[in-house]
């Protein structure tokens, strides 16, 4: 996950909180050790180095994660895809202002896509039919937060706020001084201005966008959201933030929403049970369009 994680636990006993914190940290580090593509010995790194045609038997946890990711892949018509390692790297590592050529995209696309994984469900093994590289960057935090939620429930912790890099958040119970956790999504172009406030209680918030945050107030665009169908990065200045009951589902929604066209979004919106989604399109001047979509909107 390679990102900062802040944990706020509300509990009368400090000793107990410390123990829960250690347990949480171990749980999250264990997941990172499994999914990281930066740790050379992680199973995912091994999987990424795996030669084409050679079978690989992931452990149960990784197998389940892969299966869930594959389900989401089918559900989103291939837009959510954790096998785009090469495409992502292509867009991420290009030099400032440098163009990505169609030939490069074509080459990376040849080695990308869940369709290039062949499954042997009985033996719980998989084989790559192209040099596909996995990248769980979009969804790892979601798995971690769902796991954290499970652990906190088990320990009967009722109030907690866990944030991964301030982009993926679990808000359990309520703020001690209120009836929920009021989580605000700031306007990346205007520091201090809140675009929308989510009332969060036992839910997750995650956000994604193509506009850089206010650290660089030039409104510059970064391209980490990729359309697997074209190999292109999402253009324009947009952001999406979503409140969900499952963190993984939130990550799937937030990373695919901006990639999808109108009809696909409508299809996905019909599955937004207990979810609330903020969609913002920016122009040079500021907010051009802001929409809140939830089960009631339909």
């Amino acid at each position: 996950m390679g990102t900062r994680c802040d944990v706020v636990l509300i509990h009368p006993e400090t000793d107990f909180s410390e123990r829960v914190f250690v347990a949480l940290r171990n749980e999250i580090l264990q997941l990172e050790a499994l999914l990281s593509r930066y740790l050379p010995e992680s199973p995912v790194s091994q999987l990424n180095r795996l030669p084409v045609g050679e079978p690989f038997a992931p452990d149960d946890t990784l197998w389940d994660i892969l299966q869930r990711c594959f389900d989401f892949y089918r559900l989103t018509d291939g837009v959510f895809d954790v096998t785009l390692g090469k495409l992502t790297a292509l867009w991420k590592h290009r030099r400032e202002g440098a163009a990505v050529t169609p030939a490069q995209i074509e080459e990376a696309r040849n080695d990308s896509g869940f369709g290039k994984i062949s499954w042997d469900a009985a033996a719980r093994r998989l084989t790559k039919t192209a040099a596909v590289e996995f990248d769980f960057g979009a969804v790892g935090k979601g798995f971690a937060l769902d796991q954290a939620r499970f652990l906190l429930d088990k320990q009967q912790v009722k109030q907690a706020f866990i944030s991964f890099g301030e982009s993926s958040v679990l808000a359990l119970g309520t703020h001690p001084a209120g009836n929920c956790w009021p989580v605000g999504i700031p306007n990346p172009l205007r520091p201090g201005e809140i675009l929308h406030q989510f009332q969060v209680r036992d839910q997750f918030i995650t956000s994604s966008g193509t506009v850089l945050n206010s650290d660089r107030q030039d409104g510059s665009v970064r391209s980490h959201l990729i359309d697997p169908h074209t190999g292109n990065a999402v253009a324009g200045r947009q952001l999406v933030a979503v409140k969900t009951r499952s963190a993984v589902w939130g990550e799937v929604l937030s990373t695919t929403w901006l990639v999808m066209d109108h009809s696909r979004r409508q299809l996905l919106a019909s599955k937004l049970e207990d979810s609330e989604l903020l969609e913002v399109v920016f122009s040079e001047e500021g907010v051009a369009e802001k929409k809140i979509i939830n089960s009631k909107t339909e």
Partner: peptide, 11 residues
């Protein structure tokens, strides 16, 4: 309000 997203798009 708890503002999030302060660092959300930093790689």
């Amino acid at each position: 309000t708890i503002p999030i997203g302060g660092a959300s798009w930093v790689p």
